[in-house]
């Protein structure tokens, strides 16, 4: 009886050491890489927004829509929150906020920023079942989270005020007619 139990333990340990543990490790490493890729992609967008001074609606959809359903490429694996900081106050930028305050710039719908606006991105990747199992004996699952901060250099709002909005270009025409 004891011999059978010992053999059973041996078998389970072997299966765990040879298959399960390496498989979970590889899975976690792959998710780490996916997270790094998402961070790099979000940083690209952040740098673009910092230089251009606006957030295009396409980019907003890609970044801010509930990514799980929209089929947003690699970004569907992460949750992205964007905070706009202005004058010491910060407010979350959601698709609703962006949609309400967008305007047309060179024929593209954009959400304009002002010079010096701070953009704080927070990218989170929730732990999946394998990760929860991997960290089970540690008591807590460490969350993958990365933040990056960009400050707008050349805001579109100022450019529009300084007469960038010439007739015919469609610049600075607020959707709400303001």
């Amino acid at each position: 009886m004891m011999g059978k139990l010992a053999k059973c333990i041996d078998l389970m340990a072997a299966v765990f050491l040879m298959f399960l543990f390496p498989a979970v490790c590889i899975h976690i490493r792959m998710r780490d890489r996916l997270f790094d890729m998402c961070v790099a992609r979000v940083r690209e967008y952040g740098e673009m927004m910092q230089k251009q001074g606006y957030l295009s609606m396409d980019a907003a959809r890609y970044l801010l829509e509930t990514n799980m359903e929209s089929g947003a490429g690699i970004l569907c694996a992460v949750e992205i929150t964007l905070l706009q900081e202005r004058g010491g106050e910060s407010r979350p930028l959601t698709m609703k906020t962006v949609g309400e305050n967008d305007c047309s710039y060179m024929g593209v719908d954009v959400y304009p920023f002002s010079c010096g606006d701070g953009l704080l991105f927070t990218i989170r990747m929730p732990a999946d079942g394998f990760e929860q199992a991997y960290y089970y004996f540690c008591g807590a699952v460490p969350k993958r989270e990365y933040s990056c901060y960009f400050s707008v250099r050349d805001g579109l709002a100022e450019r529009m005020l300084w007469g960038d909005g010439e007739e015919g270009t469609g610049v600075g025409q607020n959707r709400a007619g303001e």
Binding site: C25, I28, Y134, Y135, Y136, F137, C138, A140, P142
Partner: peptide
């Protein structure tokens, strides 16, 4: 089960 995940955390 313990040391490697703890190191990762």
């Amino acid at each position: 089960l313990t040391l490697i995940p703890a190191g990762n955390a």
